[in-house]
Design a protein around this nucleic acid. Structure first.
Length: 117
DNA sequence: CGATTGACGTACG
DNA sequence: TCGTACGCCAATC
């Protein structure tokens, strides 16, 4: 998307949503990768906070494609039902065993490399 | 208004 | 290699 870095500090959440929305189906990424791409490396928690607020967003954000750096579904409890996140991933062909993405390294989608705007 | 928390990640021993 | 400590910054208590 053009102009991903607006002057408004409030646009940070929007930037996160745009990046997440561009994650290919059946692929996953991490909070830290998004944070690093947005230029706030080390503040991955803000990405997680943005995901928390994404529920209020009218636009659906595929937050289930965002996991932590080791591919664990740490945010599953925020989907209403803890099993929804895993089911969504499996419906896209992503194997999940014990709240962990199988072959995470292969399915990992780095916005800084793949998107690279 | 200070302390605590959290869908994280890196540094260090 | 593994467990613990700390930094990050906004929201909540």
């Amino acid at each position: 998307m053009a102009g991903r870095f607006s002057s408004d500090p409030n646009s940070f959440f929007n930037d996160v949503y745009e990046v997440v929305a561009q994650i290919p189906r059946g692929r996953v990424t991490s909070y830290g990768a998004i944070a690093s791409y947005l230029g706030i490396r080390g503040s991955a928690r803000m990405v997680g906070w943005a995901m928390n607020a994404s529920h209020t967003q009218t636009t659906q954000v595929p937050a289930h494609r965002v996991v932590n750096r080791i591919g664990m579904l740490t945010g599953r409890h925020h989907f209403g039902n803890p099993l929804i996140m895993q089911q969504l991933l499996e419906s896209e062909g992503v194997e999940v065993v014990k709240d962990q993405v199988v072959r995470f390294k292969e399915l990992f989608w780095d916005p800084s490399t793949e998107l690279a705007i």
